[in-house]
Write a protein that binds this DNA or RNA. Structure first.
Length: 492
RNA sequence: GGGGCCAUCGUCUAGUGGUUAGGACUCGGGAUUUUCAUUCCCGCAACAGGGGUUCGAUUCCCCUUGGCCCUACCA
């Protein structure tokens, strides 16, 4: 395969969408695997809906994720590539089609067309353009346009011809021109529409493979027709399965969170998000689930891309993300700390190394599936203890009564924690605390859960929290005793 | 309405003309953790239906059903 070149053409009509990222990722992986390049272009010919802020969001997002394109080429803002900046090129191509009579001006009004379609629908006919302006002489058309009459440009398509292409993930696909009509390719000579711009750009940019969502399958024959009319070589096509909502409709913001910003803000790691997205519609025959970017590039091929759509399952994303967090902590705590820093709120300490130590504590392993949860788990160690019900302390499951806690367990725990040497090193301190508290179980003749559970709750105020020994070590003597007193109050 | 695309556990998926149809997530149970979480083990759970082809179809073909996409002077 010679010089593979793919593209990622978002249109700035909304924030960076999960679907856009998945398509970008597959293009990126394919290009890298083949030793080719991926270029970026901003499809902003819809002046009504295109917004500068969306453009920035999309570019920033893709850069953050590391899949923005190669060599900085054609990224608007760096070297600049927007369709809105290439109007003359499209005009030139449009003029050529007009001159060669492969396209023609159409003067039909919106009302006439709406009317026509409605009648066709009523008659149970497919709504198609009736060719009203098809046979206007070029001279007359030219005169009317020059006179200022409003006219769109339509492509003249063959009457009855099969248009087929070999889709790299679906195989041979074919559609007859009878199913199409002379569609509009420009609002005016200097105001081109999607199909025309895509074709002209893909040709000018030297795109060899068009890899996009399957919602474009039915657009493909139209674009092939334009490629042919212009005398340009037709690229290869590959249509990807869609990402779906739970109800199997196309992923939409009505039913799902689709903005990449939201996921990042919630504490999903970019690599984890990409890993998860890569697996939505593609996989390796082995049982691997976690891939580095290099592994994805090495293993990615289009022939292992699925045909059926895939539902976006947030639970699986959470799991993947948790795996990445676990690894990130183990590999480089300093780097991880920088990543997690913006998520740590309400934690009034400037002692970074303390927090790093806590994060590294084996007791914390696997507690987070999102960065936003780091704060929740850390919080009990630094903030004032949250209010909690006595019933959480005296849990029915363990058959604990408030009286037991008030008379036996809590006073005993205070005794133990007051008695130990708090100046020891961390790990030995942890062991002493642990041994001391566990000993209470035997002394009082109670069950483990009847002693250890309430102590942990007393120290954290939470149903789920780090281990009691871990809590005690990081809380310190005074705070521990204070929290045990609070618990004591609750049992009165 | 027309055309196109698709169809393995709830979800992501592996897989084959003959398999106990495999893995992961979720969920349930157990073990370890002297509590929660983690970790480990076990379990629940699928080839949409009907016809062919075949000695034999989840696998190949057709039909049906279902879902989705497109059917714009959006992209």
């Amino acid at each position: 395969m010679t010089n593979v070149r793919v593209r990622i053409p978002p249109s700035p009509t909304g924030l960076l969408h999960i679907g856009t990222v998945r398509t970008a990722l597959y293009n990126f992986l394919f290009a890298k695997h083949e030793g080719g390049t991926m270029v970026f272009r901003m499809e902003d010919t819809d002046k009504e809906r295109s917004k500068k802020e969306y453009e920035e969001d999309i570019i920033n997002g893709l850069v953050k994720l590391g899949i923005a394109g190669d060599e900085g080429v054609h990224i608007p803002g760096s070297k600049g590539f927007r369709q809105s900046e290439r109007i003359e090129v499209y005009t030139k191509n449009l003029q050529k089609l007009l001159d060669e009579n492969k396209a023609y001006y159409c003067f039909c009004t919106k009302e006439r067309l709406d009317n026509m379609r409605e009648k066709q629908r009523e008659a149970k006919l497919p709504p198609r353009y009736d060719g009203c302006c098809k046979n206007l002489s070029t001279d007359e058309a030219k005169k009317r346009v020059e006179a200022g009459e409003k006219a769109v440009i339509r492509l003249r398509i063959p009457e009855n011809e099969d248009i087929s292409f070999k889709d790299l993930v679906r195989g041979e696909t074919c559609i007859n021109c009878k199913e199409l009509d002379d569609f509009v390719i420009a609002r005016a000579i200097d105001n081109p529409l999607y199909h025309l711009t895509v074709v002209v750009d893909d040709h000018d940019m030297g795109i060899t493979h068009v890899i996009r969502g399957e919602d474009h399958i039915s657009n493909t024959p139209k674009q092939i027709l334009i490629f042919r009319a212009l005398g340009y070589e037709v690229p290869h096509f590959a249509h990807l399965p869609l990402i779906l909502n739970e109800d199997k409709s196309k992923l939409s913001k009505r039913k799902n969170k689709v903005s990449v910003d939201d996921y990042l803000a919630e504490g999903y790691l970019p690599e984890a998000l990409l890993n998860f997205l890569a697996l939505l519609g593609w996989n390796t025959p082995d049982e691997q689930e976690i891939f580095s970017m290099d592994e994805l590039i090495e293993k990615f091929t289009l022939d292992r891309v699925h045909k059926g759509g895939a539902i976006f399952d947030i639970k699986k994303l959470d799991w993947v993300n948790g795996e990445y967090i676990k690894r990130a902590i183990a590999e480089n705590i300093d780097e991880f700390f920088e990543t997690v820093k913006p998520f740590i709120k309400n934690i009034p300490t400037d002692d970074e190394s303390l927090i790093k130590n806590i994060l590294k504590d084996p007791d914390f392993e696997g507690r987070f599936s999102k960065l936003s949860e780091v704060s929740e788990v850390l919080e009990p160690l630094f903030s004032p203890i949250p209010d909690y019900p006595t019933s959480l302390l005296a849990l029915d499951k363990f058959q604990i009564t408030p009286a037991m806690l008030k008379d036996k367990v809590l006073p005993k725990a205070k005794e133990v924690l007051s008695g130990i040497d708090w100046e020891r090193g961390e790990s030995s301190k942890s062991k002493v605390i642990s041994d001391g508290l566990v000993a209470i179980v035997g002394e009082l003749g109670l069950k483990n859960g009847q002693v250890l559970w309430p102590i942990r709750v007393a120290l954290s105020g939470l149903e789920k929290s780090p281990n009691f020994a871990t809590l005690a070590v990081y809380l310190g003597k005074e705070e521990c005793l204070k929290r045990l007193d609070i618990a004591l109050e609750k049992c009165k």
